[in-house]
Write a protein that binds this DNA or RNA. Structure first.
Length: 358
DNA sequence: TGTCCGTACGGGATCTACCT
DNA sequence: AGGTAGATCCCGTACGGACA
């Protein structure tokens, strides 16, 4: 297997009859990530088990691209009183709609309160190919030899399966006062070698240090890295809202955009002193001075020293500040954003944030 | 390769050591 | 002294593995 920027090429075709040799590298990398996290690894057949039809589609698409069409689908369900039959029927309908595959049979599994779907490809060669390709991709990524985009797609697959992202929030009755209390990434992986590889990949490509506790490997993600992960599209669907919320909270609470908005609201393009800003922001004057200095570094403020009336106490020289035109633009953009948890304008939001971060 | 089934996962909650 | 994040514990089932 040869991995290039946009394609993945199967360079040995002799043993792999009936399989196309070119695949979309991004989709294939995600397939391999899913194979690592949720796939059967005994090399006898390809199997993917999961409750989410959408993950099945991510797994199936690249296989179909390779010309594989013989999929056997089974489902598992508890059939308990509480869950009822409608839940099963709806789930099967959705699965068949999303994947364009027929469910052949449903087995009883008393634990499966949500229907679980298993897709089999009964082909030893393809099974071995996937196992080998996953290992190869992982090893190349560990050495840093693969493009970041491909590695991101692989990690997306891994995280969709074995990953978990936890957003800790401060407990508060008033939801307006919610505070982010850290964002954590965790992967659960038993295979020690694969776990070590994944840790190294996260460190090398995304600067995230994971610590191991048994089969769990976890670490915290700061704001900037959370943004990077979002931008690279490697946050699993079911966790994306948490990461967005983290970003929104941080920026809304005391972050730079919040400060910008307050200043813009209060002073527009007028000059103001650190003391005035301190009142508006509700922060101590010395802290505000530091913030203002940072803003000036980033080109969002200009400041000058000027003389005040001589009969006032303290130094007659004061530094006064004013928002730059660029800062006003950003403030206008920010004030147009939706309240927390609305996603329609999310892309717009990301644009502004990345703009802010330079 | 169809079917069964036990546990490695996920997903929190909480405790605690360090930091500001 | 409160905040942050590292470390540990816990629980139920959705997976992967195994058997026939």
């Amino acid at each position: 297997v040869e991995v290039r920027d946009d394609t993945l090429i199967l360079t040995r075709k002799s043993r792999v009859r009936g399989i196309r040799r070119f695949a979309d590298a991004g989709k294939f990398a995600t397939l391999l990530g899913l194979q690592r996290s949720e796939g059967l690894k005994d090399g006898t057949r390809v199997r993917f088990s999961n409750v989410e039809p959408i993950l099945h589609r991510m797994f199936l698409e690249p296989l179909r691209e390779l010309g594989i069409n013989d999929f056997r689908v089974h489902a598992y369900y508890c059939y308990c009183q509480r869950c009822g039959l409608k839940k099963l029927r709806d789930a099967i309908d959705e699965f068949e709609k999303v994947t364009q595959l027929k469910v052949r049979r449903v087995y009883v599994n008393k634990h499966a309160h949500r229907p679980v779907f298993q897709v089999d490809v009964n082909d030893r060669i393809v099974a071995m190919l996937l196992l080998r390709a996953e290992e190869l991709l992982r090893k190349l990524a560990v050495k840093g030899l693969l493009p970041r985009r491909i590695v991101g797609k692989y990690l997306l697959g891994v995280l969709e399966g074995d990953g978990n992202i936890e957003l800790r929030l401060k407990k508060s009755i008033d939801s307006d006062c919610e505070k982010a209390d850290g964002l954590f990434l965790r992967i659960s992986e038993k295979d020690a070698e694969a776990a070590a590889d994944l840790k190294e990949i996260f460190r090398r490509y995304f600067g995230i240090q994971l610590h191991s506790y048994g089969y769990d490997h976890m670490g915290s993600i700061n704001l900037r890295r959370a943004l990077t992960l979002l931008e690279d599209g490697i946050i699993p669907l079911r966790h994306r809202d948490k990461v967005v919320k983290r970003v929104m909270l941080a920026f809304r609470r005391k972050g730079l955009p919040w400060i910008l908005l307050q200043l813009a609201d209060s002073f527009r393009d007028r000059w103001f002193t650190a003391r005035e800003a301190s009142k508006v922001l509700g922060k101590r004057c010395n802290h505000v001075r530091e913030k203002l200095a940072k803003l000036e570094e980033e080109g969002l403020l200009t400041s000058i020293k000027c003389k005040f009336s001589l009969n006032r106490k303290g130094t007659p020289i004061r530094r006064i500040y004013r928002l730059t035109e660029r800062a006003m633009q950003i403030a206008r953009l920010l004030s147009s954003f939706p309240p927390l948890n609305t996603f329609s304008l999310f892309e717009k939001f990301l644009l502004a944030v990345t703009f802010l971060l330079g």
